[in-house]
Design a protein around this nucleic acid. Structure first.
Lengths: 223, 223
DNA sequence: ACCTGAACACCGTTCAAGT
DNA sequence: ACCTGAACACCGTTCAAGT
């Protein structure tokens, strides 16, 4: 009853809309500027109205991480386990790269949301169907997710994201200490990182294939 | 409260002492309770006195992470690359496990401290001496560190750290949804996680050996 | 029954006033 | 020249008062 005045095309908020708006806000302004007041203002509501949809800020942050997880492709059960795991790893990295604040939130996260649980369930299901024992499926899950999250964390930590920024930052760091204090780090920076076309993101696939090959070997040897 | 007795010799603060005290404070009370005021109070000084030793709170957090890195064993150049990398990985995990707040801080970290740089330099040096090409040393560095950090992140994220907590939390999560909603996750939890003696930390070595073996293979094949 | 402005108990950081 | 209490501009969250 009591319909909204149609002159005001105000779409009512709900939990889902709040979470998606918060993700967009963090993408644009950084998680550090996401305060209940400023975020509320961006939606045209008072901060206190947000508490209608989330119990508190922690729950908002939990929900945001779950939105990011929902963007990760569920691994396809129609494919062999290896391409399925490869695709979901790449998809996970892309999602965490689109929302760089997400990985830093995971440490303080209290409880996994439905998208997270659904994703974990699908991964375990595919590994089990491929013949991994329960223990080996747990091993595989652990090493793959650790790698994905750790890589995302390193990418988020990098203070540069373009070639120019890379050069600038590397020069600045190198200039801060005598050249012979960290000789190997200096050499690797000069001869590798500062070479044209360098992009740390390209390192992801090397490690991913190394791990997938290792898991294949473990599956063949011991199930 | 509890004003310092003027008879007690007051050891003057310096940057190093402040950083170490902050690490101990975060270990005990959690990084969430580390405010400049409360931390200052724990040292018997006003919050403003801390700004004598660190420019701001961000610099304090940066310094704390560097203290954690300084606790990681530098990899020994006297050993073969594989045992050297294994030992430093285990040492890194232990340090990050002792100071669980540290991994969550890394994402917002602005610039690496001397302990971090020294550590990176030693790792690259050992890999190069073992015959890894520059590109392959960069690959190895990336996959090893991603794995270590990601594992630490997952461990810090786990809402349980003892067997009883594990059982409690698992039961609670399982109770939250119908048993057939996440069947594989449920099965793995019941048949693996809730079995006596389960400790997620034990998963670390499986992935570590898998990665070290993969790197050895890559070294033999391509340098 | 709902909404929200004001208030509360905090933050990090600045700075003028005091020694 | 140093130190620090008070102040400033924020926070997340509560709640009584108003509709």
């Amino acid at each position: 009853m009591a319909p909204e005045p149609s002159t005001e095309p105000r779409i009512p908020l709900n939990r889902d809309r709040v979470l998606r708006a918060a993700v967009a806000f963090a993408d644009e302004s950084g998680i550090g500027s996401l305060t209940m007041r400023k975020f509320g203002e961006s939606l045209g509501v008072e901060a206190m109205s947000l508490y209608k949809h989330v119990a508190n800020k922690d729950e908002l942050l939990d929900g945001m991480v779950d939105v990011v997880f929902s963007e990760i492709d569920l691994p396809s059960a129609a494919r062999d386990w290896k391409p399925a795991m490869r695709q979901r790893a790449i998809s996970a990295r892309e999602a965490l790269s689109r929302h760089r604040w997400a990985i830093g939130l995971m440490e303080s996260r209290t409880s996994p949301g439905p998208a997270t649980l659904r994703h974990h369930d699908a991964v375990i299901g595919i590994l089990r169907a491929a013949g991994f024992s329960i223990a080996m499926a747990a091993h595989a899950f652990s090493v793959l997710d650790s790698y994905i999250y750790g890589f995302a964390l390193q990418e988020a930590t990098l203070p540069f994201h373009t070639a120019e920024e890379t050069a600038q930052v590397a020069q600045m760091i190198l200039a801060r200490f005598p050249r012979d204090e960290y000789p190997h780090l200096t050499a690797l920076t000069l001869e590798h990182v500062l070479q044209p076309g360098y992009d740390y993101g390209n390192e992801f696939e090397f490690g991913l294939e190394l791990i997938l090959d290792g898991l294949e070997r473990a599956l063949v040897n011991t199930g």
